[in-house]
Write a protein that binds this DNA or RNA. Structure first.
Length: 483
DNA sequence: TTTTGAGTTGTTCGA
DNA sequence: GTCGAACAACTCAAA
């Protein structure tokens, strides 16, 4: 009788290239049984939101196609991960389980328990790193502490030996032929019951091939002007790789090596600096993982404890207006509508809408984090936590308290032709560049000509920004250490 | 142990 | 229109 298969447990690593667990399975020379287990309850209070589930569905379909082409069939299950793995081992005689690590606090706990449980049953369980350039526990300050400031963190990353070069996808796989029962993808019920995903289908192509294509597009078109264009929301100046990275359809090591290689041959002006600047952003992702690993409580609570005393407001109505893109500030609303429609928002606009929620409306950053969690296709606990705490000023290396974004001047600076605002706020499309970022100041004549009745076609501003700014500064005074 | 220099992304005001 | 300074004080990381 043939020996049992190696179980290859897919999680946030939905790719065949640069996949160390898959590589180890191939090298074991045993037949491979790839499995994905849908177990949302095990993710604590951060079970994947609607947009993430939509993406996951598409990505699993892609993964299952490409596995099948190589000769293996993806088994889908739901239930408790631990029990499913034990069941599969029993059903197939598998004595080995491989997977790639995740770093969310709840998941770390779960995986440790699973590893222990499997080993207690004499099943070999091994995990690998596919998700990060450097393991969070490998990086320490000279004092042996985790980093809390990005620049020295990234310097230390850059001074280390380079991450190993990624391995190509195996040419062929020996799939386990034992006939293992599997659910159908639809049985996981990841897709919405009411189809609201049209905008997402148009904006994205989930899966490993889509990820590679996006990276190629970025290298070809956007790298030299990256430092400039990444700030313009109307431009495809960013990599748009975040959802692919989150689901592991591409890994940071692949990006690192491809970008460096491309930069070495890039004669275009800005090519080098663009590449460096982009890798630095990948570094921020690493930093985010470093932080949730060492300070797991920050997924719910501020890193800087004095912010526990911040006089936040509970304002359900204002929160709703923000969520729906009806604050009366065109750039803020454009961003929130882009998010709702496509499951993604341009990075600069994320900072602007976040600053508005936290500093203009004084609504707790956790509310914003939750909304992003539910609506973003790239919702990632590490990056989401870092981003919101940074904006609120309560995190590591956070924005200084007096840094409050002005949605009007940000609009005029980064969306001067208002292409972005016009795309997402069609009711303002006919307003001139001069007034479109502040329609409440527009002369009656201009509004009329543009067919806008303020308060009817488009809301009057929810708050006065100058006033809101003063209030925020005063609120921040109340938590200052000491005079 | 102490000291030193620095710290993603901004805004406003006054010269 | 442009430019520099103030907006604070603190904490981090390395020397």
């Amino acid at each position: 009788m043939k020996s049992g298969p190696v179980i290859l447990w897919f999680r946030s690593d939905l790719r065949l290239e640069d996949n160390p667990a898959l590589q180890a399975a191939v090298e074991s020379r045993a037949p491979i049984l790839p499995v994905f287990i849908w177990a949302p309850k095990e993710e604590g209070s951060w079970t994947p939101g609607g947009a993430s589930r939509w993406w996951l569905h598409q990505s699993l379909r892609e993964l299952s196609f490409s596995l099948e082409k190589k000769g293996a069939k993806l088994c889908l299950r739901r239930g408790k991960s631990r029990e499913v793995l034990a069941d599969l081992a029993r059903e197939t005689g598998a004595r080995t389980v491989y997977w790639n690590r995740r770093y969310e606090p709840e998941i770390i706990r779960r995986d440790a328990a699973i590893k222990e449980g499997l080993r207690a049953e004499k099943i070999q369980a091994e995990s690998f790193n596919s998700h990060l350039l450097f393991e969070p526990w490998e990086l320490k300050t000279q004092a042996g502490e985790p980093y809390k400031v990005f620049t020295p963190f990234w310097k230390s990353c850059l001074s280390r030996p380079e991450p190993v070069a990624p391995k190509a996808a195996p040419a062929k796989l020996e799939g386990f032929s034992g006939g293992v029962p599997s659910l159908n993808l639809n049985d996981l019920e990841l897709e919405p019951k009411i189809d609201w995903a049209k905008g997402m289908r148009e904006a994205w192509r989930p899966g490993e091939t889509g990820a590679q294509r996006e990276l190629a597009r970025f290298l070809e078109d956007a790298v030299p002007a990256y430092l400039e264009d990444r700030d313009k929301p109307a431009c495809s100046g960013t990599s748009r790789l975040s959802p692919h990275l989150h689901f592991g359809e591409i890994g940071p090591r692949q990006i690192w090596h491809i970008v460096k290689q491309a930069a070495a041959h890039d004669r275009r002006s800005g090519g080098q600096r663009g590449a460096e600047g982009f890798l630095r952003e990948v570094g921020w992702r690493e930093f985010a993982y470093h932080l949730i690993y060492h300070f797991p409580h920050t997924i719910e609570r501020p890193l800087r404890a004095e912010f526990e005393r911040f006089p936040w407001k509970q304002d359900g109505q204002a929160l709703k207006a923000w969520q729906k893109g009806l604050t009366g500030y065109p750039l803020v609303d454009a961003g929130m509508r882009e998010l709702w429609t496509t499951g993604w928002m341009h990075n600069r606009v994320r900072m602007i809408v976040a600053s508005f929620l936290v500093k203009d409306l004084l609504i707790p950053w956790q509310e914003g984090a939750k909304w992003f969690w539910d609506t973003l296709v790239d919702a990632d606990l590490a990056s989401n936590t870092l981003g919101w705490q940074w904006t609120a000023g309560c995190g590591a290396d956070a924005a200084p308290y007096f840094r409050i974004f002005n949605p009007v001047s940000q609009g005029e600076k980064f969306d001067p032709g208002a292409d972005y605002v016009r795309r997402w706020i069609p009711e303002l499309a006919k307003l001139s560049d001069e007034w479109i970022h502040r329609p409440w100041e527009a002369p009656v004549e201009s509004l009329k000509k543009a067919g806008v009745s303020l308060g009817k076609d488009y809301p009057a501003p929810l708050v006065d920004h100058a006033q809101a700014r003063d209030l925020a500064l005063r609120a921040l005074d109340t938590i200052k250490k000491k005079a």
